[in-house]
Structure formats: C-alpha cells, structure tokens
Design a binder for these strands. Structure first.
Lengths: 150, 150
DNA sequence: TACAATTAGATTGTATGCAATTTGATTGTA
DNA sequence: TACAATCAAATTGCATACAATCTAATTGTA
C-alpha cells in the first residue's frame, strides 16, 4: 500500500478526527444539563431558546433560528410547546404577515429566576482553567463563523 | 438587584456559555459532512460507526456504544440499517447469547476506499493551525473524560 | 442447584434536527 | 398594476438520541 493511502486511512480513525470529540462532547454536556433542566421541565433546546428570550424579550422565528442555528422545522413545534407551557406567545407580525413574532410572557420571565443557578452548577462539572475556557470559546466561535458565515 | 444575581443572569446569556458554541459547532460540522457522506449514502452516525469497524473489524454492540457514546436505543436500528446495506453482519455471540457481535463485510471494507478522501476534504473547511487543532483535540478529550469517566 | 441480581440488546415513547416541499405574504419589475 | 420571484413559517418524512422498560441469558451465592 502506498504511503499516501496509508495516511488517508490513518485519518479515517475515530481518534484522528476533531469532529468526533466535538460531537460526543456536545452530547455529554447536554446529558449533564438534563437533571438540572428536568427541575424546570425544559429540554436543552427549550432552555437555549428561553436564554435568547430572557435576553431579547421578543424576536421573530427567523432571527431566533439564526441565533440558535436551528430552522423552522425544529423551531415551530418547539415554540408551540413553550407556548403551551405559557412561557411565550406566538403571533403574526402586523407589518409583515409572513413573520411570526415570539414574545416572552411574565411566566417566562419568572422562569429565569429558577434557571439562574444552572450555569454555575454546570461549570463545576468541567474543570477547565480560565485560560482554557477562553481559548475553547474563541476557537469554537471562530469555527462557527467559518462554517456558517452569516 | 444584587450584584450576585446580576452575575448569575449574565451567565445565562447564550454568549456566556461554553455549551452553546459546542452544540452549534458540532451540528455545523456534521452539516458540512452531509454532501460528502451523501455520496456514500451514509449519515454521520452511520459514518462514525463504519469508522470504528474499519479499524476494529468486529466488536460487540456494547463496546461499540462505549466508543461512540451511544446506547442500544440508537445503535440497534442504525446497525440494522447498515446490515441491510450489506456493510456489516449482526449475530449473537456463541459464548454469551446476550451479546451481539458486529462484523464488517467485504462490502463494508470496500466502502473505506471511497471514504478515504473525506477527512482531508473536511479539514479544508475549517482553518485551524496545527497548534490550535492539537489544543482543541486535547481539551475536548479531557472534557469527555471528566464528563463520562469510563 | 434454585433463584435473585445483573447484564446485553431490543423496544417504546418523546423530542429533536434537518432537507424538501407547501402555503401564504411581500417584493421587484415589466 | 399583473405576476414571477422571493421570503417566512409550517408541514412532511426520515434519522437520530436517549430515558425507561422489557426480554432473555448469565452470574453470584445461599
């Protein structure tokens, strides 16, 4: 076998890939959120959706999708569930009937208090130094920008 | 509002969290694999499953799940699909009828040749320096180890 | 050796994710 | 102003993920 082909095969190993630890790590982190989010009766995707709403109060589905890297196929049913729980409202925009505006409710605002302790609790699961966190953060956002230039 | 509560709320912002870019990045990377994997008629999860088999040739569902951080609920239907495609066989172990042994087929081995160019193509999507890749790799595996000590 | 406890996969049910398509509203332009 | 092109959500279909439960095999031990 040629050296070149051997190199190509080496790169096909799970342990040679960056994509795999990224994928596995993401899932493991989300798994660790679960018991904390269960107390709020939220899934992880519902949680990050609420995070955007806690900050922005109100925005269109489209904009929400860009923030979260999710499309309407995922968001529509998810937003309906959060609406049913009473955390947000969905209504067509007055000025553009194509768009749907999502607004946080008082119930939704109240949930923020219960969620406030979660980030701290999660941090304690993963022991990274200040420097490592900052590096990881920067590099992931740079990758995101490269993969999905917005 | 107390400073402490303000800090807690700041940490609730999407941009303050490490979990979010991890989650988004993982999805974006997988999305970038799609056109390459479409040519092989594999999904991403099927691809990483084949990566393990290209390396190990044969192992039990259990061991496969530990490698991939997936459980039988995900693996069983996925392995049935790959079996139907002819890339692997599933059969109960002789010495322990509870276990199912997965073996790669010749068809499965042949697929490796077609997949060999994928890692290189993916690398070109994300421009990280040698140093950055190595750092990211180390930190992700360390996190994995912390989150799921095996 | 009985038999409770454990283990490996399979199954069930719920919630994403996302590509592709559809529906209805808006925009650009001949 | 007609009307094609575009756009925003919603819908459909398929493939994960994973917790919880179930089934069958194996193991530990009284």
């Amino acid at each position: 076998m040629k050296q070149q082909q051997k190199d190509a095969y080496d790169k096909l190993k799970l342990k040679s890939q960056l994509c795999f630890p990224l994928y596995a790590c993401s899932k493991e982190v989300i798994r660790h959120y679960k018991p904390l989010l269960d107390e709020l009766d939220l899934t992880y995707t519902q949680y990050i959706t609420m995070m955007v709403l806690w900050e922005k109060k109100s925005l269109c589905v489209n904009a929400l999708g860009e923030e979260l890297y999710l499309d309407s196929g995922t968001l529509t049913p998810l937003l309906k569930k959060l609406e049913k729980k009473g955390y947000l409202t969905r209504c067509r925009c007055d000025n553009d009937e194509r768009s749907v505006k999502i607004c946080i409710t008082e119930e939704g605002e109240k949930l923020k208090e219960k969620a406030a302790s979660i980030p701290e609790k999660m941090e304690s699961c993963v022991k990274l130094s200040e420097k490592e966190s900052a590096f990881l953060y920067r590099i992931l956002y740079r990758m995101l920008e490269q993969l999905n230039p917005s």
